[in-house]
């Protein structure tokens, strides 16, 4: 149990560094630390599929983010603090945290999963779909429609990025 707390603490520290540091590159790399720690945590929590996916996605995301930061000549952020934004966001965040802890009091304790519908997948997944990896049997058979949506989301975002990055948006010569 202690290992979960330690890893989560590392994630929190990493994100504090990522948020507060003034150097963009170190900020991005701290996010990488958070992501890779998350994948270790996934592995510990019994989700090896997610651990693999998280590692490779994190690599891609880091490469993309670093691509975005190295286009800047000066990676340090100038110092200007907006006190009002900071105070208001802290108040908002504090309220959010209070409400959340209020709600969490009634949730089941950590480590006692409810398994109301999932028990069906575990009991009959192999027999009904033939996939011995139950997660695969869910994403590609029981809830395959979600996966269609998921693949479409990626398709949309890549299409959107090509659209946003095209050289010329409006034709010249036409009015406007």
């Amino acid at each position: 149990m202690l290992v979960f707390y330690t890893l989560l603490a590392i994630m929190i520290l990493g994100s504090i560094v990522a948020i507060e540091t003034r150097n963009l590159l170190s900020s991005v790399i701290s996010v990488g630390i958070v992501g890779f720690t998350l994948s270790i945590l996934f592995l510990m929590l019994g989700a090896p599929d997610l651990a693999i996916t998280q590692v490779v996605v994190e690599i891609l995301a880091l490469v993309i983010l670093i691509r975005a930061t190295i286009s800047v000549d000066n990676t340090a952020i100038e110092k200007h603090r907006d006190t009002f934004a900071m105070v208001s966001s802290l108040v908002f965040v504090g309220l959010f945290l209070v409400f959340a802890s209020y709600a969490f009091l009634e949730m089941h304790a950590f480590g006692e999963s409810l398994m109301r519908t999932s028990q069906h997948y575990l009991d009959n997944g192999l027999a009904e779909t033939g996939a011995s990896n139950i997660v695969t049997s869910i994403i590609l058979d029981y809830r395959a429609y979600d996966t269609l949506g998921e693949a479409t989301v990626l398709f949309v975002s890549v299409l959107g990025a090509t659209v946003i990055m095209r050289r010329i948006g409006r034709k010249r010569g036409v009015n406007l």
Binding site: D146, G149, T152, V153, V156, L159, G160, V163, I164, I168
Partner: peptide, 28 residues
């Protein structure tokens, strides 16, 4: 309800791209 979330994302991500379709300053 989760399926609703997934399709919500499809609709909104395509609308982000369509809002910025002209690639001018204000649109981006």
């Amino acid at each position: 309800i989760f399926n609703l979330f997934v399709f919500l994302e499809i609709a909104t991500i395509s609308s982000y791209a369509l809002v910025g379709f002209g690639c001018e300053h204000e649109e981006l």
